[in-house]
């Protein structure tokens, strides 16, 4: 009886939890393999060069299995990158300031109030951000700059900024809070002002965590389809300013997958886009690991 009890305690749960963990890994690998299987067809079955896909803007895949179209996805790539980095640029100052405020400046009791407020942002479905962008932002941009319409990189950037702001803020605030109190006390003891403590001691010590927040935010921005699609205008052209409309990878997948013939050149090219998105998030995750490992080292030395 006692032994059996021990078996449960010792092995059963361990096996179950290991199985769950392995399943997650298998699932991720499986998704990656499936995307590669579907997406690489552009290069193997339809014989396009990787160069063409990434650097040509000539996008006209044939919607059949015969192929013979062109699959230059540069416009989509540039659209995704420009909107995401604009979003990051807009969100970063606000996020950092908010994180510093949350962890360093706001009185402890107010935390109960501010934190849920910021976290609430994360839970709002993206369609709502998109819809609000469409009804408020797009007309405002149109009237403010005297344009024909307000669909633009700027509108997408602002929507993304609002969406990634809470992600960066919460992760960065946690990182700042995790900096040992002793660091602060030591710095104050040396006669540093609060600004000096925050800027020269706490922020550098929390750098890996802050970077993790930034990259997670960027990941969310890249993966966002709905909200961006609603305000970006979806014009297949390189944006010549932040006020001109363009398109993005996720937008193209979302709007074209239903009509494209399965297995045809068009849908295969869309799968390739999905593979690129998967690769990009993989790259970002690797970056996070690299950054936090480096940060850990310098932390150790300090």
């Amino acid at each position: 009886m006692e032994k059996k009890h021990l078996f449960w305690k010792e092995h059963f749960w361990r096996i179950l939890i290991t199985a769950c963990g392995l399943f997650m890994i298998l699932l991720t690998l499986g998704i990656g393999a499936f995307l590669a299987y579907k997406g690489l067809g552009t290069f193997t079955t339809y014989g396009h060069s990787v160069w063409e896909f990434f650097f040509s803007s000539d996008w006209d895949p044939a919607d059949n299995t015969e192929g013979g179209g062109t699959v230059g996805a540069a416009v989509y790539l540039v659209g995704s990158l420009s909107t995401c980095f604009l979003g990051l640029l807009l969100a970063l100052p606000f996020s950092l300031a908010a994180a510093i405020f949350l962890s360093e400046i706001a009185p402890p009791w107010s935390e109960k109030f501010f934190r849920p407020a910021v976290e609430l942002f994360v839970g709002i479905p993206s369609i709502i951000y998109g819809w609000m962008g469409l009804t408020i932002l797009v007309p405002v941009i149109r009237d403010l700059f005297g344009l024909d319409h307000g669909f633009s990189v700027l509108a997408a950037g602002i929507v993304l900024a609002v969406m990634i702001f809470p992600t960066i803020t919460t992760v960065a605030a946690d990182a700042l809070r995790a900096v040992p109190k002793d660091y602060r006390r030591a710095a104050y003891g040396l006669g540093a002002t609060r600004w000096q403590v925050i800027w020269q001691v706490v922020l550098p010590a929390a750098r890996p965590g802050v970077f993790t927040g930034i990259i997670l935010g960027l990941c969310r921005a890249f993966g966002e389809a709905m909200a961006v699609a609603m305000v970006i205008g979806r014009a297949r052209q390189f944006p010549d300013s932040i006020l001109s409309p363009t398109t993005s990878l996720t937008t193209a997948i979302a709007s074209d997958m239903g009509g494209a013939m399965d297995g045809g050149e068009y849908s295969t090219a869309l799968w390739t886009m999905a593979l690129v998105l998967f690769g990009l998030s993989l790259l970002f995750i690797l970056l996070i690991h690299l950054v936090s490992r480096k940060g850990g080292k310098s932390h150790g030395r300090a």
């Binding site: 996008w59 007309p139 979806r234 014009a235 052209q237 398109t247």
Partner: peptide, 23 residues
Amino acid sequence: ITSSLETDDSGTLLQSVADNEGA
């Protein structure tokens, strides 16, 4: 021309034309 604005479905297209004077 590729610089035209794309919309997912006819409902959204209708809304966009209604919202933009020169559409």
